[in-house]
Design a binder for these strands. Structure first.
Lengths: 191, 191
DNA sequence: TCGCAACTACCTACTACTAGGTAGGTAATT
DNA sequence: AATTACCTACCTAGTAGTAGGTAGTTGCGA
């Protein structure tokens, strides 16, 4: 792993724990073991770092959604896996999804970062809409309304549940907040 | 209105827009028109300010919940009013509920502030549980599961919907994210 | 294969500014 | 007289960023 990737990893951890305004180049320098000024070689401005952080996070998340779409047999299984992505992203309640962490401090972000943040949300919503449409056909999801509304509600629920768990550093709050959602999903089929 | 209250108002606006790490005593001094050092007379440390902010916010919110409980005839009406509190708190998508704004930067908060933040969430959840129990009796809310689960899911949905709307500064995202939730509520009775 | 120019990835040193906070002072108020 | 609510002046620490330097690496022509 090279220094540039190590810096991105360190920055992601810091941002997901404390938000964009809650970490500094000094934090990353200390974590990685290089001088603060050296970071500017890789990322001339902090906004450049933020842009690359969210670009790679969105790409990785899109890949994960594609894997779920390919691997899971029905809408319920896809939604359960989607839920799992958000639950795993929490760690033990010690960090948030990068986009949740960035959203609260959005006034500190540059236009390209905000564009990518909103694109992330739009793409998540679009993916979820397709899944809920599939659920309307395969019957594996209960209490469906409009697919786009269900999609946005699900995204909001995941982000909100993360915030509750993060506030108390208690993963079980995420589980409780999303228990009713999981109840809507048909159990996985035995094979 | 005295200076102390003006400072709390200014700090609340700033914190709800940019989070705890995103504003400073200098911002408040500039807004109110006193010197930065003068703020320390009212709030010796920034953490003291945060504590008073969240205390008064929680008190005000609890009062609002009591008013809703007293004024609304059934669970659906109470939930619609609750939804309205979160929607109104957004402004035009320019700010968040204080507890949402504080949650993302929770590592910067002191223990008393965190305790109050988590108490806020617990009290909201308890109030919502009672409302969902009422809904199970009066039949005004559809698709009920466990009252405590429904309560936490609702709180998460409101906080998450706020984040989505805040990220894009677009109130309609809040409305879309909560549309399915509102569909579960019986229409208000005509009198 | 070698020498060398260009480049990379760091370094030290520094700038300008911001942040939270303290100390001592003063005019107005109680 | 004591207290309050501000003030100026200043402190330490932190922040993002720049400039110039250097050792190591790379690529290429001879």
């Amino acid at each position: 792993m090279n220094t540039r990737t190590a810096l991105l990893d360190s920055a992601e951890r810091a941002a997901r724990q404390r938000g964009y305004d809650g970490f500094s180049y000094a934090d990353l320098a200390s974590d990685i073991g290089i001088r603060k000024a050296s970071i500017h070689h890789h990322f001339p401005k902090k906004a450049d770092l933020a842009r690359e952080l969210i670009d790679r996070y969105a790409t990785r998340f899109a890949d994960q959604l594609s894997e779920i779409a390919a691997a899971e047999p029905n809408a319920a299984a896809k939604l359960r896996a989607y839920h799992g992505l958000y639950r795993d992203a929490l760690g033990a309640g010690t960090q948030l999804c990068l986009c949740v962490a960035f959203s609260a401090g959005r006034d500190s972000l540059t236009e390209p970062v905000l564009d990518q943040l909103n694109t992330f949300h739009a793409r998540s919503t679009a993916w979820l809409s397709l899944v809920f449409e599939e659920g309307a056909v395969d019957g594996s999801v209960a209490n469906l309304t409009d697919a786009a509304d269900d999609a946005r509600a699900t995204l909001a629920l995941m982000e909100g549940a993360q915030l509750l768990a993060r506030a108390a550093v208690d993963l079980s709050l995420f589980d409780q907040a999303t228990a009713a959602f999981l109840c809507r999903l048909s159990p996985s089929q035995m094979h």
